[in-house]
């Protein structure tokens, strides 16, 4: 052993040391780590309950060392509401994809926000249905080809990409709403702060906290991992502007 070494990084306590099942280049692993880091830094592992949703990330409960319930497709905010209301001193978060949160679960997320549920929502947007094999999502970009928009998403027929955090930021019950990306170390650092802030909104009893994280799906985008990151930077970030849309600690209310 070399003396006087300082540990600058290590596996977060809340992240289980097992291989991830995600495809090469998928950013779920990075986002799982950000959630684990937030749980560790806030010291809430033993009082955190996660709600897994339907999609590739449904097996998040194999990777985070906290209690979990698995919700029906889109219903994670309702399940989280049930948990949080009966255990108000615990920390409850959902981890949802774009099909789950922005399509089938729009009623649940909107009304959890309207009620100001003290929950944290980690919203992973990769503009496509991953687990089912690359169908058009509510967040699919205009003109983007998917298995159910084979000629490119036609806005006239299928509408345009839904920007959810902008919608939620306008709701009184939301205390923190941000969108970040996980496409570079600098962006990941910003995303880490946003995830932690979304947990703080709950812990400080201010309201619902949501972070949308722009993510990649190399397999269904049919791009190698590195190109997928570049595609997210070039196409998704312009369509889904990054930044903190709402933070009640800043506005003074």
């Amino acid at each position: 052993m070399i003396k006087d070494m300082v540990e600058v990084t290590s596996r977060p306590r809340s992240l289980v040391d097992v291989p991830l099942h995600y495809c090469p280049g998928c950013t779920h692993g990075t986002i799982h780590r950000l959630v684990a880091e937030a749980i560790d830094s806030l010291g809430i592992r033993e009082r955190t309950i996660g709600v897994a949703s339907v999609g590739c990330s449904v097996f998040i409960y194999n990777y985070l060392d906290v209690d979990f319930q698995q919700a029906p497709h889109g219903r994670a905010p309702a399940v989280a509401t049930g948990i949080k209301r009966v255990l108000p001193d615990r920390v409850v978060f959902t981890y949802q994809g774009d099909g789950d949160l922005a399509s089938i679960g729009t009623a649940e997320i909107l009304h959890a926000a309207a009620r100001g549920e003290r929950i944290t929502v980690i919203f992973v947007n990769n503009a496509i249905y991953g687990m089912t094999g690359g169908q058009m999502a509510p967040t699919t970009l205009s003109g983007m080809k998917t298995t159910t928009s084979p000629y490119g998403r036609d806005v006239r027929q299928a509408g345009g990409a839904l920007r959810v955090v902008e919608l939620l930021a306008g709701i009184d019950g939301v205390a923190y709403a941000a969108r970040e990306a996980v496409t570079s170390p600098a962006r990941i650092h910003r995303a880490r702060r946003a995830v932690e802030a979304a947990f703080r909104a709950q812990i400080e009893d201010r309201g619902l906290g949501i972070v949308e994280l722009l993510s990649t799906c190399p397999v269904n985008w049919k791009l190698p991992p590195v190109e997928a990151v570049a595609w997210c930077e070039a196409n998704m970030i312009p369509a889904f502007p990054l930044g903190v849309l709402k933070d009640t600690t800043r506005s003074g209310d």
Partner: peptide
């Protein structure tokens, strides 16, 4: 106890899921 008027019966039963899963008679 807890009373929540849900936005739909879909949400209501999933709130039961959550509360019951957290160990409370729901």
């Amino acid at each position: 106890g807890v009373f929540v008027q849900a936005e739909s019966e879909i949400a209501a039963i999933n709130m039961v899921h959550g509360a019951s899963g957290a160990g409370v008679r729901a």
